[in-house]
Design a protein around this nucleic acid. Structure first.
Length: 623
RNA sequence: CGGGGCGUAGCGCAGCCUGGUAGCGCAUCUGGUUUGGGACCAGAGGGUCGGGUGUUCGAAUCACCCCGCCCCGACCA
């Protein structure tokens, strides 16, 4: 061992030994040591062995790709023996997966504690009354898995915990002096998804970190919102992910402000619009952007016979005009909110898509359904020839149409359209709101730059809820003037098990999973080549040294052929490989290298130091 | 829930159309040979053919019903 590596080795031993003390001395302080991935699990009281022999390890790897696994993370997590399906959207987390999950959780805990939040644990079973009280029972609907206990008491499995935490706070909160407070938990959630898919990406049961903050005023709430935003940014940075925070719709949770954190991946289910000129980024459900549309020529209203020509594209082609000069009219039946049951029409340009979430917001509704032919007739329309003029229903038009002239629209008569539609002249009673879905190439509403679209996996979301829950749940406190006041609230979620899948989506190659050092279930895989006593003895020696140094190691001592061992090592994704074989042993060397690159021969005595150096360099943490 | 597809051994599949004793590869077990990138030989175990009903002398195969799974749409961490 040269001087440098010897010093490195001593330092590492010291760190390994002192780790626990340092953490207990500084509760809530993030430990840079844990960035190294060295025995991280111990930091948080997990009792996992940091060293395991492969033959004792339950890692059922598969050579074939299971036929029903669509996305790469689902395939690899199954093949590499991390997860197994129990039933639709419900999985076993096998030992390797649990180790990874615990590492993700450890980072989240550190950053949450550093941000001043406190961990608690709420029940998975919740009384349905709480959901009646918050007014969310009907809104959440069938996602909420409900059941009855033996006494006939209505219960449900918690899909989220706003109700429970508000119930708790409403009992315990008395004074403004107790505020602000941020409480979080890491716990299994259950949402009876209509369509679970993609393995861990959209399960019905999943692990989530959810945090809830309570405040005396909105200023304090927004400060915490910012704090959580920054905390999430740090968490996803530490996890080594390419991600992007984006402005988001608040969905069924409600509230004012919201950002989602998306891991960028082609397999993502969400579309994100982001500006190439500034830092504007938003989910397309919410993104606002402009476009250059061809200008129509002002003209009087004229009927145009369009026999059996119905879609906007076909009508445009038939009339020989740009699709942007056609007004596309869609008719919906509204459910939820004040307009519940109403039939409404929504218009966008023929070459734009309607973004339904935007319309839902404009209506204050819960959901929309395409109107039936009969419903269209009820409001004086004809399916295929619906237009905004003369329709007996509220008409919502995309704001981009407000000044449009010379447009082509359905005439509400069979086989007939109208040309020369002047929106300002003919549709004065329409409501103008942003309804169109942002497209790539649009111009940014902030800086005028170009908008691009990317796919993302939503792994976190922060909400400034305001009093949406605290009001109905009666979370009140006495303010400085001695008056009762309703607290204001934020909530902040991270999909922990989804994150594991998202990491795999981003970190893999043909050989399998390529975990970032800090998340790998083991840092080093020690491969014994051949079964001579010398190889096994030398391997065991290295195994013990790594163990003593606090480097988590998986020792593949199986009597398998080399190909099998390397394939498994790459598949399960252990970042560092140490190979001990008869060949090198004669020279006193082992092979050492990072998964996916060439291994180098190094002295047996240098293996531990090299491992530790590689791990600290790989994580970017100071040692 | 609507539309499409699929259920045959742990995994991947063939057989079904045209009914006649259930097959292949991988995995597993035993013995042997082998050992630097998913070995070889010999042998073995393992399947209510998703379930039910019907048609038939006879059903994995044909018909009907049910269940489950996967993909496309509305939900979301």
């Amino acid at each position: 061992m040269n001087n440098e590596s010897a010093a490195c080795f001593r330092a590492a031993i010291w760190l390994a030994c002192s780790r626990r003390h340092r953490l207990s001395e500084l509760p809530g302080q993030p430990s840079s040591l844990c960035h190294t991935g060295l025995g991280l699990s111990e930091c948080h009281g997990c009792r996992y062995d940091s060293a395991m022999k492969y033959s004792n390890c339950f890692v059922p790897t598969l050579r074939d790709v299971p036929a029903d696994a669509e996305v790469i993370s689902h395939q690899l997590l199954l093949r590499a023996g991390y997860i197994r399906r129990v039933t639709s959207g419900v999985y076993d987390y096998l030992p390797l997966a649990l180790r990874v999950l615990r590492r993700i959780e450890a980072i989240i805990r550190e950053e949450m504690e550093r941000a001043g939040a406190q961990e608690l644990l709420m029940p998975m079973v919740q009384p349905t009354e709480l959901w009646e009280k918050s007014g969310r029972l009907s809104k959440y609907g069938p996602e909420l898995l409900r059941f009855e206990d033996r006494h006939g008491h209505q219960s449900c499995l918690g899909p989220t915990h706003e109700e429970v935490i508000c119930d708790l706070m409403s009992r315990e909160l008395r004074s403004y002096k107790q505020l602000p407070i941020n409480l979080y938990q890491i716990q299994n959630k259950f949402r009876d998804e209509i369509r679970p898919r993609f393995g861990l990406m959209r399960g019905r049961e999943f692990v989530m970190k959810d945090a809830y903050s309570f405040h005396a005023d909105d200023e304090s709430l927004m400060a915490e919102y910012r704090n959580m935003f920054d905390t999430y940014t740090r968490i996803f940075e530490r996890l080594g992910l390419r991600f992007r925070p984006v402005e988001a719709d608040t969905g069924s949770i409600g509230g004012s402000d919201s950002h989602e954190f998306h891991v960028l991946a082609d397999s993502g289910e969400d579309l994100i619009a982001h500006c190439e000129g500034c830092d504007y980024a938003a989910n397309v459900e919410k993104a606002v952007s402009g476009r250059d549309a061809p200008a129509g020529d002002a003209a009087p209203l004229t009927a145009l016979a369009t026999p059996a020509v119905t879609t906007a594209e076909d009508v445009a082609a038939f009339a020989g005009v740009d699709a942007a000069l056609v007004i596309k009219t869609l008719v919906f039946c509204v459910s939820g909110g004040d307009a519940d049951g109403a039939i409404v029409a929504a218009c966008v340009r023929g070459d734009d898509q309607l973004q339904a979430v935007k319309l839902i917001h404009a209506l204050g509704a819960d959901a929309l359904e395409m109107a039936s032919d009969a419903q269209i007739e009820e409001i004086g329309g004809v399916t295929g020839f619906v237009g905004p003029l003369g329709l007996d229903a509220p008409v919502y038009m995309d704001a981009g149409l407000e000044a449009a002239v010379g447009m082509l629209a359905g005439a509400n008569k069979r086989d007939l359209h109208l040309t020369g539609v002047d929106v300002a002249r003919d549709l004065s009673r329409a409501q103008f709101v942003d309804l169109r879905e942002t497209r790539a190439g649009d111009c940014c509403s902030r800086c005028g730059g170009q908008i691009a679209l990317s796919r993302g996996i939503e792994v976190g979301q922060v909400f400034a809820l305001g009093r949406r829950y605290t009001e109905p749940m009666e979370v009140q406190f006495q303010n400085q003037q001695g008056k009762r006041e309703v607290a204001t609230m934020g909530c902040y979620g991270i999909g922990v098990s989804r994150l594991m899948a998202a990491v795999v989506e981003q970190c893999h190659d043909d050989g399998g999973i390529a975990w970032p050092d800090i998340l790998a279930p083991f840092s080093v895989i020690l491969v014994s080549m051949g079964k001579s006593d010398e190889v096994l003895e030398a391997s065991e020696d290295i195994y013990r040294q790594l163990q003593a140094a606090g480097v988590s190691v998986l020792w593949d001592e199986r009597n398998e052929r080399p190909g099998v061992k390397f394939k498994d090592a790459e598949l399960i994704g252990i970042p560092l490989q140490v190979v001990i074989g008869d060949r090198g042993l004669k020279q006193g060397v082992a092979e050492f290298g990072r998964r996916g690159s060439e291994r180098q021969e190094i002295a047996l005595s240098a293996v531990v130091a090299a491992s530790m150096a590689a791990l600290s360099a790989g994580s970017g943490a100071a040692l």
